[in-house]
């Protein structure tokens, strides 16, 4: 069920400001791809164009094609709401819905998308998703408690459970561990290894060790210069990026000689 992503000549704008220019890449199904690069180079922006979350910000637009198994998600007649049902997202800061219990948080996507569902189906989804997010054992006895009462790491796994409950094809993660301690980070990284068997995963991270640990492919983004748009410098196997990158700028960045 995982799908392949092809980006072709993406130009991403905030209003008239060109934030990222000419991004082209291919992401294979059932793989983990890491986006790395300095702050402000547009890696989160690129990530948000993959499920059309970019255009939620007023004035934000995208040019170019983004193909999901060959189908252009920016094509005419494509509803961004449908795109987001296929491509899930986990954010930097855990954001469970504060009015909902753990149970309701997990099924929020299902309930809000399609309305009435049988209780047994929901129960099944909750257990499967929480197990998938490696949280089931910790919360199974208190599913009716508020989701906001969990620890930060648990909340983030709850958000992952919520994202995979709607059975997306692709899972986007925007610095999912940056607000978490090392133990929770390890739990999420382990989880990513399990999730990639079913989903195509794209993860933005500032932590290069994390990129090296979890991903098979790594994309390095950089600013073309001060006041210029961000660009994709290179995308290659993680092994190669971290040991023998093609581009000098990549080597400078990962060896700390940046700027």
């Amino acid at each position: 069920m995982a799908k392949r992503i092809d980006a072709k000549n993406l130009n991403i704008y905030y209003g008239k400001f060109l934030a990222v220019s000419e991004v082209t890449f291919t992401i294979a199904p059932r793989s983990v791809t890491a986006f790395i690069g300095p702050s402000g180079c547009g890696k989160s922006t690129v990530l948000r164009t993959i499920n059309r979350m970019h255009e939620v910000i007023s004035g934000a637009t995208v040019e170019g094609d983004l193909l999901l198994d060959g189908e252009n998600i920016y094509g005419a007649g494509i509803d961004p709401v449908d795109v987001r049902r296929t491509i899930g997202m986990v954010f930097q800061r855990p954001n469970p819905f504060p009015t909902m219990s753990i149970y309701d948080n997990v099924v929020a996507g299902l309930k809000l998308q399609s309305g009435r569902l049988r209780k047994s189906e929901l129960d099944e989804t909750v257990e499967r998703s929480l197990r998938g997010a490696n949280l089931w054992e910790e919360v199974k006895s208190r599913l009716a408690k508020p989701g906001a009462g969990l620890s930060g790491g648990q909340q983030q796994r709850l958000c992952i459970a919520r994202a995979i409950a709607v059975e997306p094809q692709v899972l986007l993660m925007d610095e999912p561990c940056s607000a978490l301690d090392p133990i929770s980070t390890l739990a999420i990284e382990d989880l990513i290894q399990t999730l990639k068997e079913k989903y195509t995963i794209v993860i933005v991270t500032h932590n290069m060790q994390q990129a090296a640990r979890v991903s098979e492919r790594t994309a390095f983004f950089n600013l073309a210069g001060v006041g210029k748009p961000g660009q994709l410098v290179e995308i290659d196997d993680t092994q190669k990026i971290f040991t023998n990158p093609t581009d000098q700028r990549t080597e400078d960045y990962i060896s700390g000689r940046f700027g």
Binding site: G88, R93, P98, T99, A108, V166
Partner: peptide, 28 residues
């Protein structure tokens, strides 16, 4: 918080439903 709206959009929930089911209850 805007993050709640984004979390809802990212689940494929339309905007009006996000407002009715997420934003209004949070601000109730």
């Amino acid at each position: 918080p805007n993050e709640l709206r984004e979390a809802s959009y990212a689940l494929g929930v339309p905007k009006w439903k996000t407002i009715v089911r997420i934003v209004l209850p949070t601000a109730m």
